[in-house]
Design a binder for these strands. Structure first.
Lengths: 113, 113
DNA sequence: CTTATATATTAACTTTCACTAATATATCAT
DNA sequence: ATGATATATTAGTGAAAGTTAATATATAAG
């Protein structure tokens, strides 16, 4: 079965849509790290982190390289870091807009959900 | 229970991580549309589209306004459109990189997943 | 060669999500 | 008021995704 472009793109973005994966990405954003360093950073569990790393790698967001018994993970390229920055900026902006709306009953921008 | 910032951010991004929602966003990117216009555009079903619209609205990605019996949906602001553009750019770039890797066994950038 | 360490994988379980069908609500036209 | 149209909501179902615990694999160190 052939995947539509939208499906593949959705899968790529889904890589960014989990709190643990966001933390992993933040953790390796500026410097490659080994799995155990990441596990320590996030105070997470090894199996769980490994699986999220596999997910991120499968989405094309991160890459890995082996050095002896260690495996270093890093962002695939600089554009991923840029995308993360922009996501953050837009997200914060939306948060502020929504918060502002909560004091204004006339606007319809704060659905329960 | 208090949500961490990462959880909220993950939820925001999850808005973009579904093929139907990506299509909806593309459909209203340049011009607000009513639900039925979107349903026609995507050849989708009304209930399904309505639910995805509620999701996008709940994520803060789109807003709505009512005009008679019609409800128009549009992107929350211009920055969302920008973010969409950048996601697309980075996605295409990753796709190309990964495709290129498939011809190079030495690189570890094409996990099955 | 044996043990320890680093990482990946598997299996079981639970939760979340997307889809459909049916029904409800609201507005418009007659 | 009645019927038609536009949209939302609810309930049910199946599939996907996240978590944990246990196990497997690979490399390094003694």
């Amino acid at each position: 079965m052939v995947k539509t472009s939208y499906e593949v793109k959705a899968k790529f973005i889904r890589g960014f849509s989990d709190k643990t994966r966001l933390q992993i990405l933040e953790s390796i954003k500026n410097k490659e790290k080994t799995v155990s360093q990441i596990v320590d950073d996030l105070n997470g569990n090894q199996s769980n982190i490994s699986q999220h790393l596999a997910c991120l790698k499968g989405c094309g967001i991160i890459v890995s390289r082996q050095e002896g018994k260690y495996i270093y993970y890093s962002l695939r390229n600089a554009e991923i870091a840029q995308l993360m920055d922009i996501m953050e900026t837009v997200f914060v902006q939306v948060e502020e807009e929504v918060a502002a709306c909560e004091r204004n009953d006339e606007l319809d921008c704060c659905p329960k959900h």
